[in-house]
């Protein structure tokens, strides 16, 4: 076995799974170092949930191996289950039971005495701001409260590896931020998190490493920055203060980049450049020409663009990421 396997909290290799005619997973590798967040990014039907279900021992792969802290998900399922917490659209709490009853039940199933399970339930309910709702059936909870209860349920056993399958799908923006904070604090605490998402901004905000999957294959993986570089150039963006300077700036940009800049908004010019030095050159040229600017930036491509470049199709999540531009 390889020497790095002990550093990996999640280590999956060559997982395949077929459902009838659908090849849900066509041989994917996923790994996450201890104490990091692995973002698994992909559109609906890419195989994200299937991968999580296999890693969480809910489903057997047709081939391939997966280990959680070195424990094989098929041969050592019990040890794996002692180490994981699962929150997803599918792993759910019982709607008829109250928040408190749900958490106590899970504590009992994790071999806690009823009194200890109650203590743990109280801890989690207060941490997730659910104490006031503890005595109400889960079906009366709002969407955000349900997600928090689901997450609390997966943390009862103090798992070291936490699977979050689309934890913020359907939540409004402020609730998403709250969920993000929770994820960050889990990682601060030393847990490893595997997060699946359709939202590029979410992966970018939370993940140390991202695996982009599509049609059951990992089509790219790396840090968010590495992924962005995969698509190549960066973009130089300039907005001259005086609109009269636009033709001159256009000429300067064309000279630096070797291609004609585009104008997406009136008075804003942008052009793709290959290296960071372009920024230097531009600043110098602008200074020499005595042109003042109100906006000047060098930015990496967005993950939307990364995804488009990788799969040749849009992600369908543009409506979500638009919030950033507004």
């Amino acid at each position: 076995m390889n020497t790095t396997s002990t550093d990996l909290a999640i280590d999956a290799q060559g997982l395949t799974k077929r459902f009838g005619d659908t090849q849900a997973l066509a041989g994917i590798d996923l790994s996450a170092r201890r104490g990091t967040v692995l973002g698994v990014l992909g559109p609906n039907g890419a195989g994200k949930t299937t991968a999580v279900r296999i890693l969480a021992t809910l489903l057997r792969p047709d081939s391939g191996t997966a280990r959680i802290h070195g424990f094989d998900v098929q041969k050592q399922a019990t040890q794996v289950r002692q180490n994981i917490g699962l929150t997803g659209q599918y792993a759910s709490v019982d709607e008829d039971l109250t928040g408190m009853e749900n958490l106590i039940l899970i504590g009992q199933l994790l071999n806690l005495r009823t009194s200890a399970a109650r203590t743990r339930a109280n801890e989690l309910l207060s941490w997730f701001d659910l104490t006031a709702a503890a005595g109400r059936p889960a079906k009366t909870y709002s969407g955000g409260m349900r997600r928090r209860l689901d997450l609390a349920a997966s943390l009862v056993g103090r798992p070291s590896v936490i699977f979050l399958d689309e934890p913020t799908t359907g939540l409004d923006p402020s609730k998403r931020e709250e969920m993000w904070d929770v994820v960050r604090s889990l990682v601060d605490d030393g847990s490893t998190v595997l997060l699946t998402t359709q939202y590029l901004d979410e992966a970018e905000a939370l993940a140390d490493d991202i695996s982009v999957i599509d049609h059951g294959r990992v089509i790219a993986s790396g840090t968010p920055d590495e992924l962005k570089r995969v698509v190549g150039g960066q973009t130089l963006l300039v907005r001259p203060t005086d609109l009269d300077n636009v033709p001159q700036v256009t000429e300067i940009l064309a000279r630096i980049a070797g291609e004609q800049p585009a104008s997406t908004r009136t008075g804003v010019l942008q052009v793709g450049v290959k290296d960071d030095a372009a920024m230097h050159t531009l600043v110098t040229e602008l200074a020499l020409a005595r042109i003042s600017v109100t906006e000047l930036s060098l930015r990496l491509p967005s993950l939307d663009e990364v995804f488009f470049a990788l799969t040749g199709k849009p992600t369908g999540s543009a409506d979500i990421t638009e919030g950033d531009a507004a």
Partner: peptide
């Protein structure tokens, strides 16, 4: 709305395997 983390400070409650729960385990 305040965030969850601010409410109770560091979430020591979730520290993985840091506390021994053996005493609370059933037979």
């Amino acid at each position: 709305m305040t965030t969850i983390i601010e409410k109770s400070g560091k979430p020591t409650a979730t520290t993985p395997r840091s506390t021994s729960v053996a005493a609370d385990q059933v037979r």
